Amino acid sequence: MSTSHLLYLHGFRSSPQSAKARQMAERMAADHPGVTWWCPQLPPSPAEAAALIDQGTKTWPSENMAIVGSSLGGFYATWLAQQRACRAVVLNPAVDPARDLTAYIGELRAWHNPAEQFFFRREYIDELRQLESGVIRHPERIYALIAKGDELLDWREMFSRYAACRIQLLEGGDHALSDFHLHLGQVLEFLRLQSA
Rank of each mutant, 00 (worst) to 15 (best):
W60I: 12
A103D: 14
H10T: 07
Y76E: 04
A29T: 15
S14Q: 05
F119A: 08
H112K: 00
A85H: 13
R99F: 15
Q117F: 09
K58M: 13
G69D: 04
W38N: 02
Q82A: 09
G106T: 08
W111I: 09
F12W: 12
S4G: 13
P33N: 11
P33C: 10
G69Y: 02
G106I: 06
A66I: 00
T102K: 14
L7C: 04
A49M: 01
R22P: 01
I105D: 01
F12R: 04
N64K: 14
V89Y: 01
R22K: 15
S2V: 13
R13G: 01
S18T: 14
K58P: 05
F118R: 07
V90E: 08
H10M: 12
S45A: 05
W60Y: 09
E116C: 09
D54P: 07
A49K: 09
E123M: 03
F12Y: 03
P46T: 05
F118Y: 11
L101W: 05
H32E: 03
S18M: 09
Q55L: 10
A77P: 00
R99Q: 14
L7N: 03
A21M: 04
S71G: 05
L7T: 00
A94G: 05
A115T: 12
L91V: 14
V95S: 06
W60V: 13
I53Y: 02
E48Y: 06
G74S: 00
V68E: 00
N92Y: 08
W111C: 09
S14L: 02
D100G: 07
A49T: 07
I53D: 02
E26Q: 14
A66N: 04
Y124H: 10
A98E: 05
W79C: 06
W38D: 04
L6M: 12
L72F: 08
V95L: 05
Q117I: 10
A19T: 11
L42I: 00
A81V: 01
R109W: 13
T3H: 07
P114Q: 07
N64S: 14
F120D: 09
Q23T: 12
I67K: 03
A21S: 08
R27Y: 10
S15T: 03
M28F: 00
L91Q: 07
V35W: 02
N92E: 12
M28K: 05
T36I: 10
F118D: 11
W111H: 11
L52T: 07
T78G: 03
A30K: 13
Q23V: 04
H112F: 13
N64W: 00
